[in-house]
Amino acid sequence: MSLTVKDPQARVDHAIDWSAYLAGQSLVASLWTVAPQEEGGLAIEASAFEAQRSSARVNGGIVGRVYRLTNRVTLSDGQVDERSVTMRVEER
C-alpha cells in the first residue's frame, strides 16, 4: 500500500495500471471505495476502467485524517483482486 498526500480542496485522479498482474486477462469490472466513510471526508467523484487500467477522481477530506482508497476489480476469467492506497489530507 502506498501513501499519497492530498489537499482538502484538491480534486485529484488516482489510477492503477493492472497490466503487470493480469497474465493475459482483462478488467471486466472495477469498484472504488473509501474508508472510513464520514461526513466531509474523502469522496469518489467519478471512476472509470479500461482493459488494463482503472482510475478514480477523489475530492474532499478532513485535514489531519488518513483514508484508504481501494480498487476492487473483476478479471475476465472471474478472479477478483484489489489494491489500496493510503491518502493523508493536509493543507498544501
Rank of each mutant, 00 (worst) to 15 (best):
M1T: 12
M1K: 08
S2T: 11
S2K: 05
S2A: 13
L3C: 02
T4M: 13
V5Y: 12
V5K: 08
V5I: 15
V5R: 11
D7S: 13
D7I: 02
D7K: 04
P8T: 06
Q9D: 14
Q9F: 07
Q9N: 15
A10K: 03
R11C: 03
R11E: 14
H14S: 08
A15W: 05
I16P: 00
D17M: 09
D17E: 10
S19D: 06
A20E: 11
A20G: 14
A20L: 10
Y21N: 09
L22S: 07
L22N: 06
L22F: 06
A23M: 05
G24Q: 08
G24E: 08
S26I: 13
S26T: 15
S26L: 04
S26M: 06
V28L: 02
A29T: 03
S30M: 07
S30R: 08
L31S: 12
L31F: 00
W32D: 08
W32K: 09
W32M: 09
W32T: 10
T33Y: 00
T33E: 12
T33I: 07
A35C: 01
A35N: 12
P36L: 10
E38C: 06
E39T: 15
E39W: 02
E39I: 11
E39F: 06
E39Y: 06
G40Y: 10
G40M: 09
G41Q: 10
L42D: 01
L42N: 04
A43G: 01
A43K: 15
I44G: 03
I44E: 07
A46H: 05
A46Y: 04
S47T: 13
S47V: 01
S47N: 13
A48T: 12
F49S: 11
F49K: 05
E50P: 00
E50G: 14
E50H: 03
A51K: 14
A51Y: 00
Q52G: 06
R53K: 15
S55L: 14
A56H: 05
A56P: 05
A56N: 05
V58P: 02
N59W: 00
G60F: 03
G60H: 02
G61L: 07
V63L: 08
G64T: 10
G64Q: 07
G64I: 09
G64V: 09
R65H: 15
R65A: 14
R65E: 13
R65D: 12
V66A: 12
Y67N: 04
R68T: 15
R68W: 00
L69T: 05
L69Y: 04
T70G: 01
T70M: 03
T70E: 10
T70D: 03
R72A: 14
R72N: 01
R72E: 14
V73H: 08
V73T: 11
L75I: 00
D77N: 15
D77G: 14
V80P: 00
V80K: 15
D81H: 09
D81S: 11
R83M: 09
V85S: 11
V85F: 00
V85K: 01
T86I: 13
T86H: 01
T86G: 01
R88C: 01
R88W: 02
E90C: 02
E90G: 00
R92Y: 05
R92D: 08
R92E: 07
R92L: 13
R92T: 07
